[in-house]
Simulated assay, not measured.
Amino acid sequence: MPIWTLTPALRWSFVGERWVFVETGIGAALFLNTHLEKHQLSTTFQFEDRLALGMALGNSELSVSLIHYSNAGIKKPNSGFETLSIGYRHPF
């Protein structure tokens, strides 16, 4: 599923718990293929809503994200879908 995304995000760290954070963001996605495994998208352009929970592991980060894609009714059918992903970030 090749996809390009641009999603600015806001991050909140909890007072006294700097190693735990929540992120949220709304952005845009461009799918290079509209036929996905279980979904047929009506447009290549989709909006992306993201909510993530993560934790710092030294210089690295581990996070779990729930992402919703939808074309916001630009073209019917608007068969939005969700994905759950696990991410790991480590600086080099």
Rank of each mutant, 00 (worst) to 15 (best):
L51S: 06
H35V: 05
H90Q: 13
F47M: 07
G27M: 01
S13E: 13
G80Y: 02
V22S: 05
T44K: 09
G27P: 00
A28H: 06
W19R: 15
R18F: 09
L41E: 00
Q40M: 03
L6T: 09
E61P: 01
T24I: 07
E23T: 13
A9Q: 15
H39I: 09
V20C: 12
F81L: 01
R89D: 08
R89T: 14
L57I: 08
L51R: 02
P77D: 01
W12D: 05
F92D: 09
Y69P: 03
F81W: 03
K75S: 07
A28Y: 06
D49M: 04
I67K: 09
S60Q: 12
N59S: 15
V20M: 14
D49K: 00
G54N: 00
I26N: 10
S13I: 02
G87N: 12
I74L: 10
L36Q: 08
E17T: 08
A52M: 07
K38I: 05
H68F: 09
L53H: 06
K75T: 07
T44V: 08
S79C: 04
K76L: 07
K38L: 11
N59V: 11
F14R: 13
S70H: 03
V15E: 15
A52I: 03
R89W: 10
L51I: 12
E17P: 01
E48R: 12
S13K: 11
T24D: 09
F31H: 05
F21R: 02
K38Y: 13
N33F: 00
H90F: 12
V22P: 03
T83A: 14
L41K: 00
N59L: 10
F21C: 02
L66I: 11
S60N: 15
L84S: 10
G27S: 02
H39K: 11
S70N: 06
S70V: 02
A29C: 04
T43S: 11
T43F: 02
L51C: 04
S60M: 09
M1F: 07
S79Q: 07
E48M: 11
L57G: 01
L6F: 15
G73Q: 10
Q40N: 11
G16M: 04
L6W: 13
A9P: 05
Y69W: 10
T44I: 05
N78I: 01
F21G: 00
E61H: 10
F47G: 04
Y69H: 10
G73T: 09
N59I: 09
T5W: 00
T83H: 08
N33Q: 12
I86Q: 11
K75Y: 06
L36T: 00
T83M: 14
L66V: 13
L10Y: 15
S13V: 07
L66Q: 09
S65C: 06
R89P: 01
H90L: 13
I67Y: 01
